[in-house]
Design a binder for these strands. Structure first.
Lengths: 123, 123
DNA sequence: CCCTATGTTCAACGTTTATTGAACTATCAA
DNA sequence: TTGATAGTTCAATAAACGTTGAACATAGGG
């Protein structure tokens, strides 16, 4: 349980897989929360998402997000820290991640996302 | 079989549903093809997608695309003409559709999309 | 060393999904 | 009216998906 799990290379990241990953409400909430955390340029660990679902269900969604290339997992002691693969995603699919985050932010209440911070555009 | 099928209103269009719809390779190809057609400001009918799959399978995907709000279906005689709901989508999710189309265009060969026209950015 | 905290893995389950072919409906043209 | 064309609907099937709880692995603190 201590080794870094496998990640796809930048070129292996596929559009349909990424979209499918983002289409699940729980995973979208995870990505949204990671995007908020980007502003503080820091990572989050599994426990920070406990509000979203049970531990084992979250582990399932974390694996999907990692395998599709949306996020990086770093193992540190008994914790796993994760962050968005912003650079790789922007290189492969320019503007996509930002459009998704912005759209999610607009619908934050409908999607039951944490308000967390102020949002760019009011509508 | 002659009445216009139901479409969601602009406000009823949901982000996860749209992303899920776009995550299927056949539906992504349909949307991509409709986006190419936008340049000629014209519509396409079901038969124009016969290269992608069988008729009944296409009808299934058309229904999904319509129900999630990605496209409009107009009935004319024995034909159904469709177009992207560009305005509604841009209003709800600014930049999202363009980012998806651009990303798909970059991966056109990998996604087995028709080359159709020239593409904005080479990479 | 034990105990606790953090996460993963596994088997089980019920649900949804994409795909098929056959049957059907509707429109148009001869 | 007959036939062809365009597309939908239905039932069936196999695969994938999300969720659960129990068992497991690992690391750190007393």
């Amino acid at each position: 349980m201590s080794r870094t799990p496998p990640h796809p290379s930048r070129e292996q990241i596929e559009l349909p897989t990424v979209l499918d990953c983002l289409s699940d409400p729980i995973r979208l909430a995870i990505v949204y929360q990671l995007a908020q955390q980007e502003r503080v340029s820091s990572e989050l660990c599994c426990g920070d998402f406990n509000a979203l679902s049970g531990k084992s269900n979250l582990a399932y969604h974390f694996a999907k997000l990692r395998e599709c290339g949306l996020m990086q997992t770093r193992v540190a002691g008994t914790n796993r820290f994760m962050r968005l693969r912003r650079e790789d995603l922007d290189a492969r699919f320019p503007g996509l991640l930002d459009a998704v985050i912005t759209s999610a932010a607009k619908d934050a209440d409908r999607l039951q996302l944490l308000p967390e911070c102020e949002v760019v555009d009011a509508n």
